[in-house]
Nucleic acid binder design. Structure first.
Lengths: 336, 336
DNA sequence: ATAATTACCGCAAACGTTTGCGGTATCGTT
DNA sequence: AACGATACCGCAAACGTTTGCGGTAATTAT
């Protein structure tokens, strides 16, 4: 039942010509007579012939497939990234193999290997939080595979990168808090081994420095998920009367802390202003609407795959690696 | 630089044996002497040999790749579905090619063709809203490709299906509204050409009937996005004083209408109770927290790929097609 | 010592495609 | 009439694997 899929050989046999002739006829090679070409093309259309991408990939040493590894798919930012990648890749004739590492190093490694096995033409990767060794990445680039890091970049590897300007975004939003009168701003930070964790903390710090506000260690809390907000519940509530602003490293934590404050009688933003990072859809649902920093996932995805395909189609260009930085914009709303 | 990827032939040459011997040695074929086997395996490991999945796929007529088509990726439900699919497929050694149709028929068709070209072993599809002809699906199943429809099923095609019990979910939530005293319940409905649109309306209708409440046409509004809520703003506000409950076909619309009401002085749920469908994360962010129906995207994804792989690994089973229905559960919260 | 096993390995075809090279007609020149 | 040019097409190798079959030695049985 299965094998009604016609190959070039089937067409050749049916028409009494050779496979090479069919192949050439289908791509309008000048060596083929008008008559044969027409016969072949007509027949191919009638049996709905489609070239076998596996055979093509094997022969031409390229699969027109791109490999993607992300920490998780169920995440608004990453899903917009995928969407951007898909939209552009689709138009260029590339298909996507998508994997998630679930923030596990081992799974990232295995997924990467599987993508290599499938001979993807290039890679788009956002690193897992728990990746501290990088030989799997090095291995891939050494094989000559173009690789673009996205958002969670690996600074130990020389490649193209697409990132948001985390420093600037954090600076922007912290500056805004200061301008509206905040002086003691709590920062809910991401782990410092992540670039985004460090950059956003830096943006926060420098904005304070710019306004001659002393940086105080007790106002920096490593706390980047709603459950960690809950875990730090007492500490935050103890601190609350002494602070006038909060800058959280992402929107989920921002809203969690905002709701924690509200449930305990604090008014946002009158008592304490709250700002997040990422512009997740939940920012618009929360009341007050969350002031946050927009991160252009869709555009970043598109740009990353653009850079990747650029390299694919100009294999031996001498162009050095680029880091494309997307500037962040403040989404000024009601929480700060 | 590129071609340091070793093949079986490279190993064969390096060791002075034939490719067949290498192939057999690597898979512990009994025809190969202990000594040769050890030599080959040691060498293969030392050069980090990995089989070429393209060649394997071509030879064995299966690619260990599954094709996915979804209406959109940036959508909490669909991204959880992908996540469930990925987690299970990963464990079983299958990779995923993921496409989005963006709710366009043409793009769905082209994506499907591309997946066929890449010789995926099976398909997982959630139909686009604008698909009204089905020959591309028929074509695929006729080629012998296992296909599982997910959530947005196509009833014209005989295949396996995985769905949520939309009727039951809608019935459940409407019944709850009625039990808490609602009598005039507005239903924000999805387009009626979609199965989910019809099923959820039916659940609503029957729940009313069960309690001897007459169904009134003016209480059914085709309106399934926040922007449509805005477009129907006046109509809804005019109606508001005359109703005591709203059942929206999804959470985004539910929250949009809830906030519209709140901004115009209505109290939820005291004046008007509001319930949604889907249990999107935003349901927990909204205030009051949204009462809604949980839709188990992750489990549905896992189940769909389980059914698919089951068919793949038992090709000529006579087992008839199944429709796996996931019962919906009420997430009782504060808005109703 | 000869025949029959056994152990081990290679040849070649196949999966579907592309492409360099060579071959056979046919045509036009002189 | 002999020659070169042109038009058209097929052979075969290659991409990396797998696998049925056959082959050669060495070992065992008679």
């Amino acid at each position: 039942m299965k094998h009604n899929i016609t190959s070039i050989n089937d067409i050749a046999k049916a028409l009494g010509v050779s496979a090479s002739t069919v192949s050439r006829a289908l791509k309008d090679h000048p060596d083929i007579s008008e008559e044969t070409r027409a016969r072949v093309q007509a027949f191919a259309r009638s049996v709905n012939y489609r070239p076998n991408a596996l055979a093509l990939g094997l022969k031409q040493q390229r699969s027109f497939t791109l490999g993607i590894i992300l920490p998780e798919i169920v995440h608004h930012f990453f899903s917009t990234v995928i969407s951007g990648i898909e939209d552009l890749a689709y138009g260029k004739g590339y298909r996507l193999m998508i994997c998630q590492s679930n923030e596990e190093f081992e799974r990232e490694r295995i997924n990467l290997q599987a993508l290599l096995d499938h001979r993807v033409d290039g890679l788009l990767i956002s690193m897992s939080k728990n990746t501290f060794q990088f030989d799997h990445f090095e291995n891939a680039v050494q094989q000559g595979l173009p690789l673009v890091f996205l958002d969670r970049v690996c600074k130990n590897i020389e490649t193209d990168r697409v990132v948001t300007d985390d420093f600037q975004g954090a600076h922007l939003v912290t500056t805004h808090l200061i301008r509206t009168g905040c002086r003691r701003i709590l920062h809910l930070a991401a782990p410092q081994h992540l670039v985004i964790g460090r950059k956003r903390l830096q943006g926060y710090s420098e904005a304070l420095a710019d306004h001659d506000i002393v940086l105080s260690d007790e106002l920096i809390l490593q706390c980047d998920t709603p459950s960690q907000v809950m875990a730090n519940r007492e500490k935050i509530l103890d601190m609350a009367p002494t602070i006038d602003g909060i800058f959280a490293v992402n929107d989920f934590s921002a809203i969690a802390v905002m709701q924690l404050l509200q449930e305990n009688g604090f008014v946002v933003p009158a008592d304490i202003a709250v700002a997040g990072f990422g512009d997740d859809p939940i920012a618009l649902i929360a009341r007050p609407k969350l002031t946050t920093v927009e991160q252009k996932g869709y555009d970043m995805g598109r740009e990353a795959v653009r850079m990747l395909i650029e390299r694919l189609e100009n294999p031996n260009t001498e162009k050095g690696f680029e880091t494309k930085t997307f500037s962040a914009t403040l989404k000024l709303r009601d929480s700060a």
